[in-house]
Simulated scan of single mutants.
Amino acid sequence: MKKIIVSSLLATLVLFSCKNQEKKETIDQEPVADQVVTQKGATYAELSTAEGGEWKGRVYEGGTSFKNVEELWVPQQHTDHSWYLRYEGPGWESSKVGYRLYLDWRNAIDIFGKVTDQMILDQVGQDNFDSYHEEQPWGQDILKVGKALGIGSYGQLVKDSVYHFQKVDSTYAKVFNGDSSSGVAILYKGWEVADAKTDLQVRLEIAPDSRLTRATLQPSTALNGLVTGIVKFDDVSLIKSDGEGDWAYIATYGEQTLVPDELGMVIFYKKSEVNAIVDGFYDHLIHFKPTTEGVTYYFGAAWVKEKDGITNEADFKTYLEEELAKLNG
């Protein structure tokens, strides 16, 4: 029975990715497990699960190694710090930056700052611990997410609160590596907020030599509170642009890493898909209009230690305007 369900979901995810592909390009939907990519200019995505141990309550104990998988039904007992998923979820990267999604109730997106232009995700978290929070030869985890969405993740805004994925019937993820991009497709079944359930399909992908992840969300019902956002930090101001053109952005720049040092974060959004920019408790939020047709946006990070990267706010703002011009071009 589960094989039949998986086949159906795979068909849904592939259809979803094709339907929302704005550029005329072919993305290989067959992910490559255990592949290590080293060439400059490539992209890479992976998802790894622990093996050799067993579940004891909500914790996977005694794991001896990790194995890359192409797809995964997230175990019902899995939660934060279960030690089952290497670096807690899927990761995807370009030569400039890496990202990871907490594939549990938090559902935030974190940043791997890179000091190299090589692919590094296969090296991260192999020691069963979170050593990536400390400086490594390739860089480190740099974003302090806390109770926020991190950068570019998604939730539901109900009154003044953003609900993550505290209640969901099941979650399915599939990674892909193609010539033009790498990333992850996710299906959340029965996401419950305020006594209402919806299914949410998500696609997150990154192109070679880009800092930007392209995110596409498609809910099964027209949610009134679908949001994305950027984590807020004290003494770091919000930068906004909503001038001419179809696209706009919100961004931040300043000392907002675990190091601590300077980091720029941005979300580009289509003005026609957005109700308002909202000041949340933990995030600068983009509140989308209700729809079942799907919404698309881009998020990205520029770390001061990135190889040949952006090292000051003025250059970051120049980068934002250049990317905005491309989207509006």
Rank of each mutant, 00 (worst) to 15 (best):
G155K: 03
G63P: 02
W92Q: 03
E93L: 01
Q35I: 13
V266A: 15
A50H: 01
Y298Q: 10
G62R: 11
I120Q: 11
S237N: 05
D28I: 11
Q39I: 06
D315Y: 00
I186W: 03
T49I: 15
A251H: 05
L258C: 09
Q156I: 05
F299V: 03
D315M: 05
E323C: 12
Q166Y: 14
K144Y: 11
S131M: 08
A33P: 09
K96C: 08
L149W: 01
A276Y: 10
G329R: 14
D195Q: 14
W105C: 04
V202H: 09
T198Q: 13
L212W: 05
W303P: 09
L10F: 05
E293P: 01
G53H: 03
T228H: 02
I250R: 12
K40P: 04
A301F: 06
E22Q: 14
L101H: 01
W247C: 04
A50D: 01
W247P: 01
G294S: 02
T311Y: 13
F316H: 03
L15H: 13
H133L: 05
D117R: 14
V168P: 06
E273S: 14
E22D: 13
E323T: 02
E293M: 05
K270S: 14
E61M: 13
T221L: 11
L204D: 12
S48M: 00
L101A: 09
V37L: 14
V115R: 15
D195V: 10
Q218P: 04
N312Q: 02
T116L: 11
G62N: 07
Q136L: 10
L103Q: 06
G309W: 05
I4L: 14
L187M: 12
C18D: 06
K240C: 03
K144C: 06
G41I: 03
D122A: 11
G113C: 12
I310K: 04
E273C: 06
G183C: 10
N275D: 12
A196F: 06
E262Q: 08
D141C: 05
